[in-house]
Design a protein around this nucleic acid. Structure first.
Lengths: 341, 341
DNA sequence: CCTCCTTGTGGAATCGATTACACCGATGTG
DNA sequence: CACATCGGTGTAATCGATTCCACAAGGAGG
């Protein structure tokens, strides 16, 4: 592979001049410029990004560590992150933590070893020492979706409180009174906040959230299945199951179906995180939709602000309720609300 | 950030010795080794992967360029690729081409600039000059899923011929005679091969595949929708629509639903590429499942064989039919076939 | 007792870029 | 006419690692 020396030799100039042409430095004669360009084209020369990074101490690369690539929510997030980063001249390396803290740490470590310019994180847990150290050491960092308390790192996320309140109102209007939730890991903010929001909304209607109706999941389909089975085994099973993410909703649907029960006639189902497939499930699932693309883009902008020395700001965007049929009443009466992405 | 010099100074040895300890070279005294280790721990030193790569001319990184991250098939592929690569000590950088050749080239170029050790490709098209040049220049490369004829690059893919034959047999048995296909881009192998396999299977039953029943899609949901509308507008619409990938099947389902028609009563639907959601759509969709995880792992092994100087082999694995209810007959008669992943 | 290995170590070259600094000739100015 | 200025260029240092080579010390063998 041709190096800058080969180009210099072919163009009959020094490597310094070649470098100047490549980085369009002002003081290069038109003459030299054209000869260098010709040599570059002739040799098919491409600068070695590794060498350049070593010298300039910047890689123009962002790291993104997400909790689960197989979750369509995170896939969409990753996509929008990459898009915005590319538009701003950065590349993105994605690490999939699979909801496992060790794997998350593995990726953070590799990313740091590669000297990425900044890190976008959606922590699987309450924050490992490695992550905290990196933040303290001044690695440019931004949390997306999930975050960690007590760390001075900007957070870009959606606020679901209002949407959860709307959901509960919707459920209450439909006559449901026994509402259960499949929560995410308590160590994650999205795990605990969604339960809190749900509980608060229930309280407004004078409803309680008994322990028996609070199942502990891990954001994976299997846990949704398991928790749902527990709910259905109860002497008095809930009328509604609210899953704190889309995969657990899938598991719940499985479990309900396996018992020969019907949604929403026997049990109603709702989920946090809307995804395209929810339109096509049987029945279509009522969900709380996050502005995923906007979240990803805002996170990248915040991170790059931080990297380039500007002051990054935390961002909170509202989530919204998308009513479909999984909680009852085909929603024909109110056609306004029947929004599809 | 601490460098090897700092470690050397802290341990009272030369950088050469530190390097030897780090790469556990045999001739280092136990004495030096422990002192270096202590210094490393004390300083929290981590070798700079950029510098190391420059010197050794290897990055221990693989590039993976896929056609569409939002397609669950490719997400799963990416996941298995990363998993196997990690197990073998490599990292993976994923590029999403979004079915756009320019974007694909952008990613190939960036990956090459970063001097990745090898490239895993699922080409969006017939092969851009850049891609062909890279192959010719000797960049270790392997095609996954989709490939390009006339290039000397190993291919790891699934063979769907037998499964398509089974599908057609299944459809014929159910009494369907007017079968249509939503094809992928003809420039992709998966685009053309699936049509060919379908046509060949139909021929075995004395059925033709008229042009009117061959719609041109681009592997995206929208195109599935558009083509399906065309089919339904025909004076004699098909009885079955076979989508060459899962996203186009989703679009087809949308279009059918929008007309107020029912699956499978009014039109039957089948898809290439099985995904977890197909179990939960209304109705569950009959699909041809690829051994996605195995494909990803085999591709990584082939690529690493090539990188490390062993002779890589092409791999072809069989796809299989998963019968659900979208083509008619609840499949109760034959419970053996009702396999779920 | 002198050579010859072996083992452990450090100095320095190297990878491919960027960039500070020195230099040279041409132009402008007092 | 001497001198400062400036545009254009090259030499060389530098980033942080790896690794070749030289060398010293110590043990084995003649």
């Amino acid at each position: 592979m041709a190096s800058i020396k080969d180009v210099a030799a072919a163009a009959g100039v020094s490597v310094a001049t070649v470098s100047r042409v490549l980085n369009d430095h002002p003081s290069v004669s038109a003459e030299s410029r054209t000869r260098v360009m010709a040599a570059v084209a002739e040799l098919g020369y491409r600068p070695n990004a590794v060498a350049r990074s070593l010298r300039t101490d910047q890689t123009r690369t962002l790291g993104l560590v997400i909790s689960d690539v197989l979750n369509p929510y995170f896939t969409e997030l990753a996509r929008s992150v990459e898009e915005e980063a590319r538009a701003l001249g950065y590349s993105v390396i994605i690490g999939n933590a699979d909801e496992r803290p060790e794997l998350q740490d593995h990726h953070i470590r590799t990313l740091l070893d590669r000297r990425i310019d900044g890190l976008l994180l959606s922590p699987t847990d309450g924050g490992t020492p490695l992550m905290l150290d990196a933040a303290r050491a001044g690695t440019p960092m931004v949390f997306v979706d999930r975050w960690i308390r007590g760390v001075d790192v900007p957070v870009v996320r959606a606020d679901g409180q209002e949407a959860v309140r709307e959901l509960v109102a919707h459920l209450h209007r439909l006559g449901h009174r026994r509402l259960a939730i499949i929560a995410g890991p308590a160590a994650t903010t999205t795990g605990s906040e969604r339960v809190a929001a749900f509980r608060a909304a229930l309280a407004e209607y004078g409803l309680a959230l008994p322990d028996a109706y609070t199942g502990q999941g891990d954001f994976q389909a299997d846990s949704g299945r398991r928790v749902t089975e527990g709910f259905l085994d109860l002497p008095e099973p809930p009328e509604v199951i609210f899953a704190a993410d889309n995969l657990m909703a899938l598991g719940a649907l499985d479990a309900i179906r396996a018992r020969g029960l019907r949604v929403p006639d026997d049990v109603a189902l709702a989920a946090f995180d809307d995804i395209p497939w929810f339109v096509h499930t049987d029945p279509p699932i009522t969900a709380i939709a996050q502005p995923t693309g906007e979240l990803g883009r805002a996170a990248v902008r915040a991170l790059i602000d931080r990297i380039e020395g500007r002051a990054p700001a935390s961002v909170t965007l509202p989530a919204r309720l998308v009513v479909r049929r999984s909680c009852g009443e085909p929603s024909l009466p109110s056609p306004t609300r029947r929004s599809e992405p």
